[in-house]
Design a protein around this nucleic acid. Structure first.
Lengths: 253, 253
DNA sequence: CTATGTGAATTGCTTCACAGCC
DNA sequence: GGCTGTGAAGCAATTCACATAG
């Protein structure tokens, strides 16, 4: 609204659709790649292609942030990187703890993508005393007895749970009690959290099951062609652009 | 059940909404837990709570599959487990290959959730010759030179990419050329695939960025109340149930 | 009387198409 | 002339509320 001639976009920070928020990191990544190649400006068409969406959607998304483009020209890459980073809150540094340093926790600790975008692994926590002190990704693992102290000392508000399913709810409750208000959950369980706490879930097996569903369809319907090679073809239904399937999170209490 | 005067539910297998498909694995997990506890029947209300959705949504979702409940009673747990499994294609066995056996690939190979639901890790593939033959999760890693042969010999149609971003597109193309039609991508890149190939993406850093966005909001707006405890309140917009934010996949060519 | 199954209403997201500005 | 920004139209998903079956 406002179509503001006022300097400040006006729309800023109020009611950006969830679907748009979920795409901002995608745009940011594409823009960062352009920035590294020193590309100065980019059109909605080009950027959309790089991010894997269509250009109308991208322009609409950006319109929620403000008018950051130049008509007839496109978007200034650096400027847009900055604006999206700011909107996502990545201009500040977010200390994160990872709880559960098994295979997955270790993989997460080693994952470069965190550090590169405003996230800092402040601590690794595990319930196994044998792990304590052992460095993973250069960070010594701490025992979960000290969880609350670690959270508070580091001002952590984002926690990552990579424990077995059985331990996840208890860990979640301790994190929340200690002050964490956003949780990324890799354990295959539904977490109950009080209002005001956000949970996002990543579940490997769920993603595979969704693929299996579509895979089954292909075999049942389309195929028949012969048997060996899949033979793409047919079904424009699920095949084309991007039906946003997904389970978000943000659980009720 | 079956109220159907036609035997076949009629709605079967045609046009189940993506959003519903994405929730079926959630229901299935909750049902499996009930089944293990030998609970015979469950109401939409109870099951919805266990799956973290509301009951109206659950009933609507199930209505796309058919009429599998009993009015005044609820759903037969075992029967529903079977129906959903069948709908998702989990009554058959899906051989899967994991490409890129780094930290994450190894974690995936060790992840029990795969095997437990119709998925079988048929092969682990890595480009590093030093890895070849080394067993991970009891499965010997094979060199990527043999990728095509492995896919074909095992009849693999689902591939998991856990390589570095730079290698992902090339791996993807080889998988597709060899006959894979569904890909689960953990590399932080947009994959281009021909029509008819499904891609789902899991991106750790994107999930964190979405959390950071909401976290920033909490700090900026709501807070003020005191500082320590989050204080829930306000913002019914993002806080309550489950806005399905997410980036799907299924790229255009 | 209870809890499912589902049309109808609502809300939110995407796509279209073009006015506005460079 | 070209490309952004955005109302308006079109779709899809969610929620409501109640008829219907057990």
């Amino acid at each position: 609204m406002a179509t503001g001639r006022t300097h400040r976009p006006a729309t800023r920070s109020r009611g950006i659709p969830e679907a748009t928020v979920a795409r901002l990191p995608l745009y940011l990544r594409a823009l960062t790649a352009l920035s590294e190649r020193s590309v100065p400006t980019v059109s909605s068409e080009e950027l959309a292609a790089a991010a894997g969406v269509n250009s109308a959607k991208l322009r609409k998304d950006f319109s929620y942030l403000g008018s950051y483009g130049t008509r007839g020209v496109g978007y200034d890459v650096e400027y847009l990187v900055y604006q999206i980073s700011r909107e996502l809150g990545l201009t500040q540094d977010w200390p994160v703890v990872i709880v559960g340093i098994g295979n997955l926790g270790a993989a997460l600790a080693n994952y470069g993508g965190f550090a590169s975008r405003g996230f800092r692994v402040a601590a690794l926590i595990d319930a196994d005393p044998a792990m304590a002190g052992k460095p993973v990704a250069g960070i010594p693992v701490q025992h979960s007895d000290d969880l609350e102290k670690i959270i508070q000392d580091n001002g952590v508000s984002i926690g990552v749970i990579a424990t077995p399913a059985g331990a996840a709810q208890a860990v979640c409750e301790r994190l929340v009690a200690a002050g964490v208000t956003s949780i990324l959950n890799f354990a295959p369980t539904v977490l109950s959290v009080p209002e005001g706490v956000d949970v996002r879930k990543v579940d490997l097996s769920i993603e595979l099951q969704i693929l299996a569903f579509h895979e089954q369809r292909k075999a049942g319907e389309g195929a028949a062609s012969d048997g060996g090679v899949p033979a793409a073809a047919a079904r424009s239904e699920s095949a084309d652009q991007g039906p946003d399937g997904d389970m978000p999170a943000v659980m009720p209490a």
